[in-house]
Simulated scan of single mutants.
Amino acid sequence: MDCPRSNSSTCSSGATVNLTCSEPLRLVGGASRCAGTVELRLIGEWRRVEERYGDWYQEDTTALCRDLDCGSAVYGEEKSGFPQSRVWRVTSDCVKKSSVRECVSDSFSSSWGLEVKCSDLVLNRPIISVSVSDGASELQPQGVQVQLGSKFRVKCSVEPQYPGGSFRLLSPAAPPAQNCTLPAVNHSAHFLFSDAGPAHKGNYTCVYLLQVSDHNFSSQSHTLQLSVGESDSDLIIRAVVILLLMLLFTLPMYYYCKARARRGARERTSDDLELHRGRSM
């Protein structure tokens, strides 16, 4: 129901109301609805959009293509030479975080405007999962836990949409420059890890990469948190070792204290005997 504007027909009480939502943002003059000059409708009037300070970046184009449901950004830039007219001015910092319609600062007469082209291609979001070949794994509220020293596999997959592509795994196990990239086979890729340890703890993310018509597109999975814990047998062994160490430490102390107590008792008995003899004499 997030409709900035809508058209509705009047109706009698109890009848159904039909609403048609219209997005007050469009690209005009291009080869498709996902390419052209940016125009925004406010107060019932369509006007070109201009960046207030002339700072328009790829991230801004990405946000605008997202608002238009036009896939990934191909390019976007500010151009002059448009007919002098009033434009809606926006700020780049705002566009990165919010929708274009919420970032209008004022209206101004200008011959500048924004030219944008989007891919009109929306990739499915990849799916990330973890499985363990030896040992065991346990689902946690925010991810999965694998046993210390076990072998585990991270699977990146995506619903069939386009052939080919590749998967890149972002993980804490290696610096970003060394993160693995594997080709997509049957729309999936498997990343194998052995001897799980503290270095494998952290967040894992799959990135699906695809090239279409000399343009690169990507889609990112949600983040999976992986933790590494000890197995029950390891915990039992550790508890037994700790108990043995405590016994090894406490038993000598016990016998030492007991021996001192006996020696003290003998010394007190000897003193009592001598005192008794002295009184007798």
Rank of each mutant, 00 (worst) to 15 (best):
S105K: 15
G164S: 01
S227T: 13
W46S: 03
S109Q: 03
S80D: 12
A35R: 14
E102L: 09
L251K: 03
P83W: 03
C70H: 06
L209D: 05
R263T: 02
D195E: 13
Q58V: 14
R266Q: 11
G135C: 02
L68N: 07
A177R: 15
L114V: 08
E23T: 08
S137E: 08
F152S: 02
L114C: 09
F82W: 13
L42C: 13
Y204V: 12
P126S: 07
S13Q: 13
R238F: 15
S213M: 06
G81Y: 05
D271C: 10
C21M: 04
Y255N: 04
E45A: 15
W88N: 06
P176T: 03
L40R: 06
L224P: 06
C118T: 11
L209Y: 03
R33F: 11
G30Q: 15
Y204T: 05
Y57A: 07
C156I: 10
V100M: 12
T37G: 14
L148Y: 08
P183R: 05
L19G: 01
L251A: 14
S9A: 09
R168G: 11
T20L: 14
L244P: 10
T37C: 08
S110D: 12
P252D: 02
L25F: 12
N216F: 02
C206N: 01
N124M: 04
A136C: 03
L251D: 14
K97G: 13
S150R: 09
A199C: 15
P252A: 05
G54T: 07
E51T: 07
K151C: 08
V87H: 01
E102G: 13
Q145A: 09
F167Y: 12
S233L: 14
G202M: 08
S233E: 08
V212C: 08
R153T: 04
G54H: 02
S119E: 07
N179K: 00
L244F: 09
Q178V: 12
K258C: 02
L68K: 10
Q145V: 01
W88R: 15
E77G: 06
S221A: 10
K151W: 03
L121F: 03
P141E: 02
S157D: 14
T16Q: 09
S188R: 13
L273K: 06
V104T: 00
S194G: 07
K201R: 11
V146A: 01
Y162K: 09
S188L: 09
K151A: 04
S171Y: 04
F193N: 02
T205R: 15
R41V: 06
L121Q: 01
Q140H: 14
H276L: 02
T10L: 11
A73Y: 00
M281W: 14
P176W: 01
S110L: 09
V38G: 04
H187N: 09
L245R: 09
G165H: 06
L210D: 01
F193E: 01
K79I: 12
L247Y: 07
P163E: 11
E77N: 12
L68S: 04
A261N: 05
R262K: 09
E274S: 13
L192M: 14
A173Q: 10
I242E: 01
G264F: 00
S72L: 07
Q225A: 15
L123F: 00
G264K: 11
K79G: 03
E138L: 05
T10S: 03
S129Y: 00
Q140M: 15
S98W: 05
A184I: 15
E50C: 08
E274I: 12
G44E: 03
S99Q: 13
G29K: 13
K117C: 05
